[in-house]
């Protein structure tokens, strides 16, 4: 039993990260119709920036905040320099453009930070917490707390602010939104900025658990995408739930099936989801954006 709990505890920690990356996919896909391949790369940029700032001696809180802003800026740059000038291209072309952005960002990170993984310590030091025989590291608690806070913030944003509602409108029907004087180009900018910022948050809380390195963007992007698809690619909360279930499925898969195929678990889930329930696991609940 304690073994099972350990798998679940590990899985939730990883799954929360997948979910946060997945949120970005959902926001961008709904507002612009683009699957953004550079999503995991924002996480990477924020994580590495945070490491550099911490190494330069900046205190934790400002360092992490600046790093998140840096990640968000990468989102702004993606939208303004690449997506916006190309907005008359086909969606297919836009998706491939984000592949180009991802390649360039990865190269840039390699240029600045080199190949070696780096890391800083957990936010609060101390031994892991024991829950019914399962060890949960303190940083995992931070990850969960931050994920919860992000969920609340997203709920508030989409439900209570004008911009959030405008973005929802854009997601529902872009042409109708334009008739309501909502500028899709502006919404696209907001979407990219938010998606990158959320990924950035995931990046800075993730570093103490593992480490930051220049080519972490692709694997995290893929897992985040899978999380988003499990959630039906329609709601940020679906993506969070999808991430958590993916993380747990992976960890339990390692525990009881085969660790060699653990990565296969995620992608088989992705394939099955698309084939069997392309509307996502949570569609029945008729999730709105909030």
């Amino acid at each position: 039993m304690s073994e099972f709990l350990q798998f679940v505890a590990s899985g939730i920690g990883q799954g929360a990260i997948y979910g946060l990356v997945g949120v970005g996919f959902v926001i961008i896909y709904n507002v612009t119709g683009i699957i953004n391949f550079a999503q995991g790369h924002y996480l990477m940029l924020s994580a590495l920036t945070a490491v550099s700032l911490r190494e330069a001696g900046l205190p934790a809180v400002p360092a992490l905040l600046v790093a998140i802003v840096a990640g968000a800026l990468a989102g702004v740059v993606t939208d303004r320099l690449v997506i916006n000038p190309a907005r008359r291209h086909s969606p297919l072309m836009l998706i491939i453009l984000t592949v180009g952005v991802a390649i360039a960002l990865e190269g840039l990170a390699l240029l600045i930070w080199g190949v070696n993984p780096r890391r800083y310590g957990p936010f609060t030091a101390g031994p892991p917490l024991e829950v019914a025989g399962a060890a949960i590291s303190r940083q995992t608690l931070w990850v969960l707390g931050v994920t919860l806070a992000m969920a609340l913030a997203l709920w508030w944003f989409f439900q209570r602010t004008l911009v959030g509602k405008a973005m929802q409108a854009c997601a529902m029907n872009r042409d109708a939104a334009r008739l309501q004087a909502i500028n899709p180009a502006q919404m696209s900018l907001y979407a990219f900025t938010m998606a990158a910022a959320v990924a950035g948050v995931a990046g800075v809380v993730l570093v103490p658990i593992t480490s930051a390195y220049y080519d972490m963007g692709v694997p995290f992007g893929l897992k985040g995408f899978t999380a988003a698809v499990i959630g039906g690619l329609v709601s940020p909360f679906g993506a969070l739930a999808g991430g958590l279930s993916l993380g747990v499925a992976e960890a339990v898969g390692v525990g009881y099936v085969s660790s060699a195929m653990a990565e296969g678990v995620a992608f088989t889930v992705l394939a099955l989801m698309l084939v069997l329930r392309p509307e996502g696991l949570l569609a029945r609940v008729r999730m709105r954006w909030a």
């Binding site: 798998f7 590990s10 060890a135 993730l206 339990v252 390692v254």
Partner: peptide, 8 residues
């Protein structure tokens, strides 16, 4: 990012 399950 976490190999605790394998180690368990």
């Amino acid at each position: 990012t976490d190999v605790t399950p394998q180690l368990t």
